[in-house]
């Protein structure tokens, strides 16, 4: 039902092409996350799907219908904006009811749907308030409420959590994931935060400069990144990259090794180094180890109990079966 197909879609602003020809299929019911650094075109791509921007060429198909020329409202999509875009002069009830009113739905049905959305989102007590009187998290929920009452064929989220503080963000992440499980409607979610992408997505689309770098499930991207960009973007702390002699030993221009795939020992290992900074998170500890022989600093992630300190000399051993190899172009070997 909510399948979305982009076929050779491009977008130019004036003479600048921000999206070169792009193909993408989003299956019905998928939670797809567009992720990439700022300016990579992920928001533009979302706005093209929403119909808020016209495509320069190519076609978009939504739920089996040709939608390229359709107005935003006719695409049967709902969108949650970064700023929430609530109507400041309307109560929460009126905000949520607005799309239904625009669709000329009858009063009783509107009330029923608004009450049920409010119930799902714990907004029942706030229905008569104005957006200005709500907290950030509550505003976020109103925006989501306004989206779900329409029962759209797909939801679009444009960096919806970026205005919330860290603790709320984790909570809302869970709520949105649960919502997806409950509704099992297609969702497209734009973020620059790879943690949000990894935790929520069933499918991640990594974008850079308007080009899709890789599409896959979170674990596929983590285990087999197609190139150095994806490898570096997915995973936290970032993957370590080593060039030179050590890479050549593995028949590669460059090798990548995730911080959690390195063993640390006080006495023996393949790479010697000095701990420059150690960050204790409790459950985990990150060491930034200065390796003079490699002329680089490697990040290592170990169990919280491992007892090294700043200035200690340590020996590092990458787990050989978890090393990623890349060629000169940065492609995976």
């Amino acid at each position: 039902m909510g399948k979305i197909v982009l076929n050779q879609v491009t977008k130019s602003f004036g003479d600048t092409q921000v999206i070169p020809p792009l193909d993408l299929t989003i299956e019905d019911g998928e939670f797809t996350v567009f992720v990439g650094p700022s300016g990579c075109g992920k928001s533009t791509l979302l706005r093209l799907i929403a119909g808020l921007e016209d495509v320069s060429s190519g076609s978009i198909e939504i739920a089996g219908r040709e939608a390229t020329q359709l107005k935003p409202a006719q695409r049967e999509l709902a969108m949650v904006f970064q700023s929430y875009a609530l109507y400041p002069h309307m109560s929460v009830r009126k905000n949520i009811a607005f799309p239904l009113k625009m669709a000329k739905m009858d009063k009783a049905e509107i009330d029923r749907r608004v009450e049920s959305a409010a119930d799902i989102l714990n907004l029942t007590d706030y229905l008569e308030r104005r957006p200005g009187q709500l907290s950030g998290g509550q505003r976020q929920r109103v925006a989501i409420g306004r989206a779900i009452v329409r029962e759209p064929s797909a939801f679009l989220f444009d960096e919806p959590l970026s205005n919330l503080d860290a603790a709320l963000r984790v909570g809302m992440r869970l709520e949105i994931s649960e919502l997806h499980k409950r509704l099992s409607t297609t969702m497209i979610y734009v973020t620059h935060d790879q943690v949000e992408a990894m935790t929520m997505a069933t499918k991640i689309v990594v974008l850079r400069a308007g080009v899709i770098e890789q599409v896959g499930s979170p674990l596929e991207l983590y285990n087999t990144p197609r190139n150095r960009f994806v490898a570096g973007f997915i995973g936290s702390p970032k993957m370590n990259f080593i060039e030179g002699a050590l890479a050549a030993e593995h028949d590669a221009h460059c090798i990548g090794i995730r911080p959690e795939h390195i063993d640390v020992s006080a006495t023996e290992g393949s790479i010697q180094g000095t701990i420059n900074v150690s960050e204790h998170l409790g459950s985990d500890t990150f060491f930034h180890v200065n390796c003079e022989a490699l002329n680089t600093t490697l990040t290592v992630r170990v169990d919280g109990e491992v007892g090294f300190n700043r200035g200690d000399t340590v020996f590092l051993t990458p787990k050989s079966d978890l090393i990623h190899r890349f060629d000169e172009q940065g492609l995976r070997l």
């Binding site: 929403a50 935003p72 904006f81 700023s83 875009a85 609530l86 799309p99 625009m102 329409r150």
Partner: peptide, 18 residues
């Protein structure tokens, strides 16, 4: 008036008049 609010109205199916 923030542009996103007008876009939201468009997404919500409001005609130019509405």
């Amino acid at each position: 008036i923030p542009g996103e609010i007008l876009e939201a109205a468009r997404m919500d199916g409001a005609s130019l008049k509405n």
